[in-house]
Simulated scan of single mutants.
Amino acid sequence: MNASKPALRRSLKSDLARVDAHVVKQGEYDDLPELTDDMLARAKVKRGGRPVSENPRKLLSIRLPVDVIERWKATGPGWQTRMADRLSKVR
């Protein structure tokens, strides 16, 4: 890493100053159809993000011996899910 070079800023790759300076003219939106009640009735709102889980998880803080954690970690990726599955079977 070269500390003498400044880090590059992320860019939106659009000219926001030009967009902000644009003034909407009278006939610019004449081609767009009028918004009707039928159009609004057919509209669907799509929410972003992950879907709601049927079996949501709850954050819990628990202290376990280091050797227990290391044995689970040694089983590879997904060890926390496998641990949760094993604990859910012990009822």
Rank of each mutant, 00 (worst) to 15 (best):
P51F: 02
S88G: 07
H22A: 15
R10F: 15
D31W: 09
S4G: 09
M83T: 06
H22L: 11
M83R: 08
R9W: 00
L16I: 10
E70A: 15
V45S: 11
A7S: 12
A21V: 00
D15P: 05
E54C: 07
R82H: 02
G27A: 04
W79L: 00
V66D: 10
L59W: 08
Q26N: 00
G27E: 06
K25T: 10
D37L: 05
E34M: 11
K5W: 03
D31Y: 08
K58W: 04
L87A: 12
R63E: 15
D85T: 07
V68L: 12
M83Y: 09
L59V: 02
G78Q: 01
Q26S: 12
A74G: 11
Y29W: 13
L64P: 09
S11R: 05
L35A: 01
L64V: 00
L87E: 12
L12W: 03
E70D: 07
D15G: 01
Y29G: 13
S53G: 08
L35I: 13
P77G: 11
A41V: 00
R71E: 10
P6H: 15
D67P: 12
S61Y: 14
D37S: 03
R18K: 08
R86N: 11
R50Y: 11
V19P: 05
K44S: 07
A17S: 08
R71F: 00
A7G: 14
S14E: 15
S14Q: 09
G78W: 09
A17W: 01
D31S: 10
M1W: 04
H22F: 01
V19T: 11
K46I: 01
I69L: 03
D37V: 07
K25R: 13
P33G: 04
Q26H: 04
R71A: 05
P56F: 00
I62Y: 04
R91N: 09
G27T: 04
L40D: 09
